[in-house]
Nucleic acid binder design. Structure first.
Length: 848
RNA sequence: GCCCGGAUGGCGGAAUGGUAGACGCAGCGGUCUCAAACACCGCCGACGCAAGUCAUGCGGGUUCGAGUCCCGCUCCGGGCACCA
């Protein structure tokens, strides 16, 4: 008898895998490659259970593919630029670079004991000049390709700290440190022309068959292709230069219901009016308060001011509409100006009701009378409506038909044109921060904006910076900032904005194929390894990161940095759920919450006996202290227990709640499996038994099922099957040889999830070499077939009996057997059978 | 506010439109033990003595048959372009 002892055996197997080079990715043209990638972590300080879950999923895929004979690339890196490093420097002193590299060292040390099949020789960090220098080279390539430009864009401005704030740093419209009311302010910023690819990024979604449907839908809605009418109102009483007001609408069919026009507070007309009209100026100033997020704008109180300017209705020159400035209109979408049709848009309805503007229906529900509206009538697109006013006539039609008719009418009569627009905006990448990739351009008074010469790359971040005052320290760094113009040699200034960290993460997957190359990528390596076959990460990245990566793949190909294929970076995507935990909270006298770590809470009480309030499970977060440190679990039970737990029970796309009981149960099961193997190993050679064939069939069926479930990303179901196989071996009375065979297959099938225990069992049963390299078990189809089948019999849809018949019995015979069944006869009680439905191999339903 | 998901026993969950609750946890009963723990065996949706009835967030609908499809809600979660 020997004990399951993960603490000593896990490091031993990790050393064995290392020395055998099991996980080193090899460019081997003779073998099929498989590239599996998990979204790389931000080096926040310590790994958490979410990381364990994410990387274990990737590991299961990678290990299965290795066993199936693929040449596997499974790399790891660090998304190492970002705000937290600067925040740490401001709060605790120190330097973002030191903080970041320190965290990377700690987290790497924490990841090693998990026994992940990572090729660490390809490790990269985005804050490494070796990485961001290549990124700068690509930025310059993109400039040359016309994919980069500058324009004014709004940012969150903290008027007290005199600094730009991230959306995260705006809390209830106020700066997180100063508490001052945030304003929207315009700044000249760098942009990538992702909008050049709107149509293509949308169309190509159809080809992403192995992406979750919901992610494709979210991206499609985000890109937001719409067909609408663009036309211009003729203005009355507007300042010079504003004789026309351009409007885009997706609902031109409601034009006859217009009761006002409205423009964004950021619209040029609003800016022109604010100069001369104090009332407008006051409103616009008020409307610019608050953050820049669409959520803040859309959920705030809808306010407006009448500018006094009027516009003529395009279909009736005598009909004038007032022009309002409204705080809910986004300058970034359409033309920043709309017409309001209160009868058929709820937001316009609320606005009109509030300010006493007319509400005039254009159509009513088919068959309904025209009556006063209590809310906007917005039909579904396919719903037929009856027009009661306007050019579209009296006939009924659907919304889609009406829109098309209205565009046709406008084009025929020359007052507007049908246009296709996208909601997707260009990608603003400028950040007024230090800890990011410097934008490699120089501003020269004579030459304008000049890219840095490629031979001068990387433009390195200076180390000697201080974070003792708000703002970007690069702005205050004279020797770094003040340089000679690369073009004319005259004194010039370096761009001090750095890049959005999403840029860093938009191409790292390609860099992994040649992480040390002197160019961003290397054709031969990209050709072999790309695309990523399986990408795994959180659903919170469903839109931005994934869309930016898809854009970057295209931009890189355009600039020759991603040769040949790789138009789509990720062939298959899996979005995993979060790891959650209950939150334990107490309140102080003032009612402010205090949070407590799970390890400090026993039976709902703190050590001093205070009862805690239990808040339902939520994403593990440091601020709520509902975290379990993976290192504690590994120390107590070993990595395999943590891995087995996060893969069992919950489906991987859903959240999983970490519970101490669950971890304990996982540990117990692994012990049971070890004990089972140990018992079989200690049986004398050639111990006879009964039921060999049964156990073999169970083993083959398990191999088939587990493989199917792993390949379908249903790890919880794979684990359920592994429980069944372990239970079956436990109960079996088969011969020693067959039991050994079964337990070795069990070890192999478990090896992606619990690789160390699998090696232990493999070795104990006399397996050759490492189980990590043993060929994946293949089920014999002959062992999977059944000869009989049990069919439930329903009477009027309720299950009343069951029969067991040969699998291939013809339906007519099944009917006879079913109707002759004693229970069926009893239930029918002589009633005539109206209908009999036999679904072969499935069910019989008798209708009376 | 807008876009996208989710909801099934005490708990996590399973179920190509075809026997609702696989598998696991907790619980209950038993074996072993002086005893406890461990381990092992068995039971385990609710109500009912039983036959059976009721059960997949709520309200409708389609179907021989609905957890699954359709319509209308509720609650919870993710995203909303400077968190990563």
């Amino acid at each position: 008898m020997s004990r399951y002892d993960p603490t000593t055996s896990e490091p031993r197997w990790q050393a064995e895998w290392d020395s055998a080079g099991v996980f080193t990715a090899r460019h081997d043209p003779a073998r099929r490659k498989y590239y599996v990638l998990e979204m790389f972590p931000y080096p926040s300080g310590r790994i958490h259970m979410g990381h364990v879950r994410n990387y274990t999923m990737g590991d299961v895929v990678a290990r299965t593919k290795i066993a199936q004979g693929f040449s596997v690339l499974h790399p790891m890196g660090w998304d190492a630029f970002g705000m937290p490093a600067e925040n740490a420097a401001m709060e605790r002193g120190g330097h973002p670079q030191d903080w970041t590299y320190g965290n990377i060292a700690v987290m790497k040390d924490q990841m090693k004991p998990l026994g992940l099949s990572i090729d660490w020789s390809r490790e990269l960090a985005t804050c490494d000049p070796e990485y961001y220098g290549q990124q700068q080279a690509m930025f310059i390539d993109m400039m040359e390709a016309g994919l980069v430009y500058r324009k004014a864009a709004v940012v969150n401005w903290d008027p007290v700290d005199m600094t730009v704030l991230a959306n995260e740093q705006v809390i209830d419209g106020k700066g997180w440190r100063s508490g001052a009311e945030v304003e929207r302010r315009e700044l000249t910023q760098w942009f990538f022309k992702i909008s050049n690819y709107s149509e293509e990024l949308l169309d190509a979604l159809d080809g992403l068959k192995d992406w979750p449907e919901k992610v494709r839908l979210m991206q499609a809605n985000w890109i937001g292709k719409s067909r609408g009418l663009q036309f211009a109102f003729e203005t009355v009483g507007a300042p010079k230069g504003f004789e026309r007001l351009e409007v885009y609408t997706t609902r031109p069919d409601t034009l006859m219901g217009a009761s006002f026009a409205a423009i964004s507070p950021d619209h040029p007309l609003a800016k022109a009016l604010e100069v001369k009209d104090p009332k407008v100026a006051a409103f616009v100033a008020e409307a610019r308060k608050g953050g820049t997020t669409e959520e803040a704008i859309e959920t705030g109180e809808k306010l407006g001011v009448d500018t006094g300017v009027r516009v003529r209705h395009p279909l009736d020159p005598d009909w004038e509409l007032p022009v309002w400035i409204a705080n809910f209109i986004l300058m970034d979408y359409g033309t920043g100006a709309i017409f309001g049709c209160p009868a058929h848009d709820q937001r316009d309805f609320d606005f009109a009701t509030k300010y006493g503007l007319p509400i005039k229906p254009v159509f009513v529900a088919e068959g309904a009378d025209e009556a006063a509206l209590t809310e906007a009538f917005v039909p579904m697109k396919s719903e037929r409506v009856r027009f009661v006013s306007g050019f579209a006539g009296e006939e009924t039609q659907t919304g889609d038909e009406a829109v098309a008719a209205a565009i046709a009418h406008a084009e025929k009569n020359g007052y507007g044109v049908g246009v296709t627009k996208f909601r997707l905006r260009d990608w603003g990448i400028s950040r007024q921060r230090y800890w990011g990739c410097p934008i490699p351009v120089i501003h020269c008074t004579a030459c304008g904006v000049v890219p840095e010469k490629k031979e001068n790359l990387p433009v390195r971040l200076p180390y000697d910076v201080k974070f003792d005052m708000p703002g970007n320290p690069l702005d205050r760094h004279p020797t770094w900032r003040d340089v000679a113009c690369p073009n004319c040699g005259m004194p010039a200034k370096r761009e001090t904005d750095t890049m959005d960290t999403f840029v860093d993460s938009s191409w790292y997957y390609a860099r992994f194929t040649a992480p040390r190359a002197a160019t961003p990528t290397v054709a031969a390596e990209v050709d072999y390894w790309m695309n990523v076959d399986q990408y795994i990460g959180g659903v919170e990245h469903a839109i931005l990161h994934l869309l930016y990566s898809r854009f970057f793949a295209r931009a890189m190909q355009r600039t020759g940095n991603l040769p040949k294929k790789a138009i789509e970076p990720f062939n298959a995507l899996f979005t995993q759920g979060m790891v959650t935990h209950e939150i334990y909270m107490t309140r102080d006298a003032a009612g402010r919450p205090a949070y407590h770590l799970p390890e400090d809470v026993t039976d709902g009480k703190l050590a001093d006996g205070t009862a805690v309030e239990v808040v339902p499970s939520a994403k593990m977060s440091k601020s709520k202290k509902n975290v379990v440190d993976p290192m504690d679990i590994i120390a107590a039970y070993g990595a395999d227990t943590a891995r087995w737990f996060v893969m069992s029970d919950s489906p991987p796309e859903r959240d999983v709640e970490w519970t101490a009981a669950g971890a304990e149960a996982a540990y117990k099961h692994l012990n049971r499996v070890w004990t089972l193997s140990d018992r079989i190993a200690s049986l004398p050679e050639a111990t006879p038994g009964t039921g060999d064939d049964d156990l073999l069939r169970v083993t083959h069926r398990a191999a088939a099922e587990v493989t199917r479930q792993i390949e379908g990303f249903a790890f919880n179901k794979a684990i359920a099957k592994l429980y069944e196989l372990a239970n079956a071996i436990q109960k079996s009375d088969a011969s020693n040889a067959v039991q050994r065979q079964a337990v070795m297959v069990l070890a192999q099938l478990m090896s992606p999830m619990t690789p160390h225990l699998a090696e232990d069992i493999w070795a104990a049963q006399g397996g050759k070499g490492l189980v990590a390299l043993a060929p994946w078990p293949k089920a014999d189809p002959a062992m999977l077939t059944e000869t009989t089948v049990t069919l439930p019999i329903q009477i009027n849809g309720k299950r009343r009996a069951e029969i067991t018949v040969p699998k291939d019995m013809p339906p007519a015979e099944v009917e006879q057997v079913a109707l002759a069944d004693e229970a069926v006869v009893r239930f029918l009680a002589g009633q005539p059978v109206k209908k009999l439905i036999v679904v072969p191999g499935r069910i019989v339903n008798v209708v009376v």
